[in-house]
Write a protein that binds this DNA or RNA. Structure first.
Lengths: 193, 193
DNA sequence: TCAAAACAAGGTCATTTGACACGATTTTTT
DNA sequence: AAAAAATCGTGTCAAATGACCTTGTTTTGA
């Protein structure tokens, strides 16, 4: 569980052994059962989350009870509500485990300390924020401009490894289309191949 | 034109007079005619843009020729393609002037220099990036979950000052709905009021 | 100031989409 | 191992949406 995170840092950064140990020392371990929640609407997002194993989802629940998934985070990714975390204000979102998962948590004060004492980590964090921004922009463009069929093809192309790990209703929710429409798209593609 | 920017910095930051002058010294002025372009697909986004007067739009053109607007930036706002700017790679987007506009430009090397020599500016820039991230996330959620009517109401609520400055076809493009649907929503709201 | 272009608003119609309901399976949990 | 829950794929139908076209008006730029 810690080993996964250590390998991740070695692959993605050039942090020294000491720095890596400093970062790890600040983390708390947590195992999540399927469907267990890490954040609910109204909570304050107090931790940065690294997913060592499993798969989390980040979603919103609208007034009519509909769930809308903004992000999936499988192992070797991070998850948080940036707005709620940065400003320590109540969130409008939910985070829960799609699969049984193992995560590392850093409380904000500890992580802020690490950002100062490990400057390399700050650079790395900024990279991650940038990438997340690019992704969101691309996702917004797709949501605005693509047909349901294009949205699904895009998902298959960019996240093939998630396809078999997610129930179709979650993929539909992520793409902003109904389950019915998603089934139609998949059915039509079978005919064409 | 520079006065607008100076006022903006005084309102939004606590930069010293010296720092403000340093930032201004790095800028180039440019006047834009209605519909003039600052960035086209394939270009590299070489400048940060501050809008002193007028209104710009940031959009993508899909294979079928459809325009999809991701962002409007009126006076006292910034505009750029972060991915193309950060990495100096070709963009997939367009930026042009909705109204005759006056902008300030900083080439990336100069602005990077300012971020180092004026640490306060760096903090301010990070704030802006965060806010832009929050906005994008909110926008993505709306695009995924809201009905055309809710999207329009949301736009009227969050950007009333833009309503009268934009042709309806651009608002429709920004909301990801057809002009026909937008007209229907507006017509129905007239009846109800 | 005047011609050209852009725009708002609406009509028609074919298509797409979602809501609801239904078994047949598969997966999860007890 | 059995019961409960979740999932997948499908059928039907009504409603929502977009493509295309037209008219009258406003705005723009020469």
């Amino acid at each position: 569980m810690i080993a996964e995170f250590e390998n991740y840092l070695r692959r993605q950064t050039t942090l020294s052994d000491d720095d890596i140990n400093r970062v790890i020392a600040g983390a708390t371990l947590k195992k999540l059962r399927r469907n267990e929640f890490l954040l609910r609407e109204g909570d304050i997002c107090r931790h940065k989350i690294f997913i060592a194993k499993g798969l989390l989802r980040f979603f919103s629940v609208t007034a009519d009870g509909g769930e809308h998934i903004l992000q999936f985070s499988p192992e070797d990714n991070w998850m948080l509500d940036p707005e709620s975390y940065d400003q320590q204000t109540p969130t409008q979102y939910y985070i829960n485990a799609v699969e049984p998962s193992e995560v590392l948590l850093w409380a904000k004060p500890e992580f802020d300390g690490l950002l100062v004492s490990v400057p390399q980590l700050k650079l790395f964090a900024e990279q991650l924020i940038s990438r997340s921004g690019y992704n969101n922009r691309q996702r917004l463009l797709t949501a605005l401009s693509a047909t349901p069929e294009q949205k699904y093809e895009d998902f298959v192309r960019t996240s093939p490894e998630l396809l078999s790990r997610l129930p179709l209703r979650m993929i539909a929710s992520y793409l902003g289309i109904s389950l019915k429409t998603l089934n139609r798209v998949r059915h039509d593609q079978l005919l064409r191949s």
